[in-house]
Design a protein around this nucleic acid. Sequence first.
DNA 1: CGTTCAACCTGGGCGC
DNA 2: TGCGCCCAGGTTGAAC
Length: 299
Amino acid sequence: MPELPEVETMCRGLSRLRGAVIRAVVFPKSRRLRSVVCRPAAAVVTRSLPTRRLETIARRGKRLVLGMSAASGGDAASKDRQLFLVIEPRMTGLVLVAPPPTLEHVRMTIAFDSMGSPGESMGLSFWDRRGLGTISLVDACGLERVSGPDRLGPDALEISGAVLCERLGRSSRAIKVALLDQRAIAGIGNLYASEILFHAGIHPAVSCRRLAGEQWSRLAAATREVLEEAVAMEGSTLGDATYRTAENLAGRYQQRHVVYARKGLPCPRCQTPVRRIVQAQRSTFFCPGCQVAKRGRRG
DNA sequence: CGTTCAACCTGGGCGC
DNA sequence: TGCGCCCAGGTTGAAC
């Protein structure tokens, strides 16, 4: 379930590839290949990327964006244009420099010319058990269209209380549901939404409209603190999830989880059993003792 | 404006 | 032991 911390960790794990030149791109032949949503067709990616240099490795929300140099020759349509490979891991996608967990679910591999160290082969693979992940190849205009400010709000790592309030404060939606809206704020998913609301002491079902100014500040602070800590611990690898770092290591932030997937277990702060509710068809976990519904403007 | 549901997928866990 | 069902949740898009 890669959310902001997991994708940020993948992003950092690819840094050794910066500056490398692409030798080949392969989409392994498989009946399952078509489940990779790839715009344009895989053949175009295979043809357009070799000889380009990987110049930038960045994250936008939960997406990884690999910036490729303009081609010196080759395909006329893409010549002299920078291209961006946008990878959305969604539920089970992994971006790896280490060998993938199985060959079966490898959706794409990129081989790079080795830089300086001839013994070492350099490669990147996109592995995705469930095949919900997507790969797109776009130019700078396309990148703004698919991942620009119209599609993704400001990054959750840099959110302020004022911006949160401005973007969500007039909504009647439950705050937990609103936090998952990538057009409002980019990067928060189902797992971190529950954890963030716990740390902010806000009940997940409270309407955005009922949150007071000081609560938006606390929410923004909790968002930054939880996500920064999760990035520092390389994301969350739960028992039922497949997330791994680019080096195929488990994350460690699950050790800090207070409420997520902990229904019935005592809150470490007040010992009240954690509750699970369903909002917008997704599980929400919270502590009924620490996260009080009746607060805000009319306390 | 909002919610609800289906679709895309695999595999772990559970009840029978 | 094994079959069928539910569930996990990121995103899109349609229906209401």
